[in-house]
Simulated scan of single mutants.
Amino acid sequence: MSVFVDVAPPDATRPPGGTRFPGWLARVALPLLSLLVFFTVWQLAAASGIWNQTFVPYPSTVWRAFIDVSTTHDGVRGYAGYLLWEHLYMTLRRVFAGVVIGVAGGLALGLLMGSIPWVRSVLEPWLTFLRALPPLAYFFLLVIWLGIDEAPKVTLLALAALPPAAVATTAAVVAVPVSLVEAARALGASRRDALRDIVIPSALPETFTGIRLADGMAYSSVVAAELFNGVPGIGGLVKDASNYNNTPVVLVGIFAIGISGLVIDGLLRAVERRTVPWRGKA
């Protein structure tokens, strides 16, 4: 009995490397296309005359505002005496400090809550309570307690970053298969060894997701954190410009926060790929 296997010839229209071109298309060409569509729609909306230029300025107007904020012109240095990169540097410094403190506390709490059930029962409602609060709800209290310098800003960002990191780490630790831990203990591993060699590696993928969420929460709170004495700072720039209906400068600040956030998230993704190469493979 003969078995014939019909092997289709290679598709001549497929580019070398199989799916490389579609992958490249999805990663580069499609985002660029979406960006082009966004600016086209924005230009058309501004040119339509439906909205006042105060509300929807032309993209070229925002670009000129970006140049003005980034340079010294007519004797004026940037915005409020600081260049755009100086505003962004101060904001990133505050975000970095807040995220480091919040994530460190969140990881410690997550490991503790995931490993000890009664600790999780005690602390989980408080974390949920804190996570549900908008930053402005307690920022004014922080200002009363800590003043208007850097302390309340960094504290606010840390409190915004802590719950996502803690919740993600707790869920990741709880999800570690008990059989793996018990097998390690049966082979003579101590509790510390099981935590180091089994629990933490298994929890790392979800923990990185929590770190990225924590960074996003800190970024979403940065304008609130810089409401008082926020210049230099992107949040302070946005608040001050909004007081004078300076929409182009407000949009420059928004774009600065968003683009820097994309860059930082990309860096976190790169670190995650190097630190947790087994994610999705085991």
Rank of each mutant, 00 (worst) to 15 (best):
53 Q>V: 14
87 H>M: 08
223 V>K: 05
187 L>Q: 13
101 I>W: 03
87 H>Q: 09
35 L>M: 12
71 T>H: 14
156 L>Y: 03
178 V>W: 08
201 P>E: 07
144 I>N: 10
13 T>V: 11
189 A>Q: 04
200 I>G: 03
107 L>S: 01
61 T>P: 01
40 T>M: 04
98 G>M: 05
103 V>A: 06
231 V>G: 08
83 L>A: 11
59 P>K: 01
94 R>G: 09
71 T>E: 10
168 A>H: 10
24 W>F: 14
247 T>R: 11
264 I>E: 02
168 A>S: 15
12 A>H: 09
270 A>H: 03
35 L>N: 00
197 D>R: 13
215 D>V: 12
281 K>D: 06
30 L>Y: 13
211 I>C: 00
233 G>A: 07
178 V>R: 15
27 R>P: 00
179 S>M: 07
160 A>P: 05
89 Y>K: 14
72 T>Q: 14
147 G>W: 06
223 V>P: 08
276 V>R: 01
282 A>N: 12
46 A>R: 01
163 P>C: 02
169 T>A: 11
106 G>L: 06
121 S>C: 05
179 S>R: 14
71 T>F: 11
100 V>M: 10
39 F>G: 00
172 A>Y: 10
251 L>S: 01
77 R>P: 02
177 P>T: 05
151 A>P: 02
229 N>I: 00
172 A>G: 15
120 R>L: 00
114 G>M: 12
266 G>T: 05
248 P>K: 06
118 W>Q: 14
245 N>Q: 11
195 L>M: 15
120 R>S: 15
3 V>F: 13
179 S>W: 01
82 Y>V: 03
164 P>V: 03
78 G>N: 12
232 P>Y: 08
81 G>K: 03
111 L>A: 02
190 S>N: 09
129 F>L: 15
85 W>S: 14
225 A>D: 04
55 F>Y: 12
218 A>Y: 01
25 L>N: 06
84 L>E: 04
17 G>N: 04
261 G>E: 04
106 G>E: 04
223 V>E: 07
207 T>S: 03
73 H>T: 14
192 R>D: 06
246 N>A: 14
91 T>K: 10
33 L>W: 06
183 A>R: 08
225 A>K: 05
125 P>K: 10
94 R>A: 11
3 V>L: 14
218 A>T: 04
249 V>N: 01
33 L>D: 02
118 W>S: 15
146 L>W: 09
279 R>W: 04
133 L>C: 09
258 G>L: 03
261 G>K: 02
185 R>L: 11
113 M>A: 08
129 F>C: 00
131 R>D: 09
271 V>C: 06
92 L>D: 08
276 V>P: 04
8 A>I: 08
117 P>A: 14
203 A>T: 06
268 L>H: 03
203 A>G: 04
120 R>E: 15
53 Q>I: 11
256 A>L: 10
46 A>K: 01
151 A>K: 15
133 L>G: 05
251 L>Y: 02
109 L>P: 00
26 A>H: 09
227 L>M: 12
173 V>H: 07
182 E>M: 06
146 L>Y: 11
143 V>N: 05
17 G>C: 08
183 A>V: 13
96 F>W: 10
133 L>N: 07
152 P>M: 09
280 G>I: 09
29 A>F: 13
8 A>F: 09
